[in-house]
């Protein structure tokens, strides 16, 4: 999962402090693994360097440095591209997919589109595996089947999520 894209996406709704970003990330996506401060700052500096965010201002006063970040035009384009690109069908994709769907809902993009293109990508992969299976020996078949079953599980999740997009939108934008 790309933390950079996620943080970028969160910035789309408005400039935030690094601390706020971590809080928002944890609340929406970090259910079992909260993000470390260090991770936030290192990611932000990389994004700064690539021109995807800019520093909107610094809060004066003692304590830790409190920079406020805002997303740039290039950053928005980057988020857009990331969301539109289906993930390579691999096992255990759901957290990335989930992030993408939620971000799409948060930023008023079409979440169903994301799910449909992901399904298409999964199927493309499954076709390749099915074809390989058909031509291969028993070992190939078993290996392919393993991948196929995982992909199928993902696909089922995609279907289920698609059917529940309305409820999810309600939950995340509350």
């Amino acid at each position: 999962m790309s933390i950079g894209h996620t943080l970028l996406g969160l910035l789309e709704s408005g400039p935030r402090h690094g601390y706020d970003l971590k809080r928002a990330f944890d609340e929406k996506f970090g259910h079992d693994r909260p993000l470390h401060y260090g991770q936030v700052y290192s990611t932000m500096s990389r994004l700064l360097k690539n021109g995807l965010v800019e520093v909107d201002g610094i809060e004066p006063g003692g304590g830790p440095e409190r920079k406020r970040y805002a997303i740039t035009e290039a950053g928005i384009t980057d988020v857009q591209q990331w969301l539109a690109t289906p993930e390579k069908p691999e096992p255990y994709l759901q957290s990335t997919l989930y992030t993408k769907v939620v971000l799409a809902l948060l930023t008023d993009r079409d979440a169903a589109d994301i799910l449909d293109s992901q399904r298409s990508e999964h199927l493309r992969m499954m076709r390749i595996l099915t074809d390989r299976k058909r031509k291969g020996d028993l070992a190939d078949q078993l290996i392919c089947d393993h991948a196929l079953f995982h992909l199928e599980a993902d696909l089922r999740w995609l279907e289920l999520t698609a059917a529940r997009l309305g409820k999810l939108a309600e939950a995340v934008t509350r």
């Binding site: 589109d113 199928e152 698609a162």
Partner: peptide, 27 residues
């Protein structure tokens, strides 16, 4: 409705609420 059956196809279209979506041309 089974992905592994659909994997035997060359192309899929998705029907939702009576509307179809041709995935090949959508991407």
């Amino acid at each position: 409705h089974e992905a592994r059956v659909a994997a035997y196809s060359d192309r899929e279209i998705v029907v939702r609420d009576g509307k179809s979506r041709d995935m090949e041309r959508a991407v």
